[in-house]
């Protein structure tokens, strides 16, 4: 239990998807112009990560990694399908996003109008695939850890984009050098926020 909490906190602050690994930068920069839209995308990303990371963990554990198929029959012990993991993970993510889109459209049209435009963007958001790949690489021991990691990473990304959007709403009134306007200053701000987040490294978990 302690371990799960640990992973959760770590993935929000220390291993923050945006500041430590630059995951999901494209949409981070494109959609952080207003807090409201940033909020929508943040929720969508968090939700999709919360579902895809544990799902991919199950696939990795019982289908993909070396010897994983031995639960079907011991003869399959030597099968190692891990080379297929990229393609399986992205397929799971793309189909889940599609599914979420259809469900939300049917049952909560109001939410769909808010989120709808972001959902297709999520399939190619590196934060989502990155979450699954890190889950595989770090080898989380059970589904609880994987879920905590998925949720924490999603919240970390959400937090980052909201903070960025809040700053950008203010900076619109500031006198930024013309050549830095827009993308340039956003990059530099993200870097500075990243340095600020590095102070969390000192937390001993």
């Amino acid at each position: 239990m302690e371990n799960i909490l640990n992973i959760f906190i770590r993935s929000i602050f220390i291993d923050n998807m945006v500041f430590a690994f630059f995951f999901g930068m494209c949409s981070f920069i494109a959609v952080s112009k207003s807090v409201k839209t940033a909020m929508g995308l943040g929720i969508a990303v968090t939700f999709v990560m919360l579902v895809t990371v544990p799902l991919n963990w199950l696939l990795n554990e019982y289908v993909l990694s070396g010897g994983a198929l031995s639960w079907i029959s011991p003869e399959l012990k030597s099968v190692d399908l891990s080379f297929l993991s990229f393609i399986i993970f992205i397929a799971v993510i793309a189909s889940l996003v599609q599914l979420v889109e259809m469900v939300v459209e049917k049952f909560a049209p109001a939410l769909y109008n808010q989120l709808g435009i972001f959902l297709p963007l999520i399939a190619v958001n590196c934060a989502i695939l990155g979450g699954s790949l890190f889950m595989q690489e770090r080898g989380y021991a059970n589904i609880g850890e994987a879920t905590a990691f998925g949720l924490g990473s999603g919240i970390g990304w959400w937090l980052a984009i909201i903070m960025m959007a809040a700053i950008r709403e203010k900076i619109a009134y500031s006198n930024v050098p013309p050549a830095l306007k827009g993308a340039g200053i956003t990059f530099i701000l993200t870097g500075l926020m990243g340095i600020a987040f590095m102070t969390f490294l000192g937390i001993q978990l």
């Binding site: 050549a179 340039g184 990059f187 926020m193 990243g194 590095m198």
Partner: peptide
């Protein structure tokens, strides 16, 4: 070598490029 510096460096590259090529400046 720390991750945030990569972003700041990209920011600086953008700055240099757009200072030289004014048509790219965002409004």
């Amino acid at each position: 070598l720390l991750p945030p510096m990569a972003l700041i460096c990209v920011g600086i590259i953008i700055w240099i490029q757009r200072s030289r090529n004014k048509s790219l400046i965002e409004k």
